[in-house]
């Protein structure tokens, strides 16, 4: 059985997110990392265009549309 939470008295079903709910705004750069080598990436892209990457193409339990 899921436990029920009693609603706080001052809130109602139209509870709205308030500005002070949000964490402080202090942006930080996060450069995307390279995990695939460019050549492998290009080859994988062309395979992906054809039918999606698959480790073992001969073993298929379902037909892709």
């Amino acid at each position: 059985m899921k436990p029920e939470l009693e609603l706080p008295s001052q809130s109602d079903l139209d509870i709205v997110e308030a500005a002070h709910w949000m964490p402080p705004h202090a942006p930080m750069e996060m450069p995307e990392q390279q995990l695939e080598r460019p050549r492998a990436r290009a080859a994988a892209r062309s395979r992906a265009r054809a039918r999606g990457w698959r480790f073992w193409p001969s073993l298929s339990f379902r037909q892709r549309v």
Binding site: M28, Q33, E36, R41, R47, A48, W53
Partner: peptide
């Protein structure tokens, strides 16, 4: 350490469809 995580851990999406992409 947030600086370390920010400079090295933004993960790209892998090419292709799941489960490997």
């Amino acid at each position: 350490r947030i600086r370390a995580f920010a400079e090295s851990c933004a993960l790209p999406e892998l090419t292709g469809r799941p489960p490997f992409g």
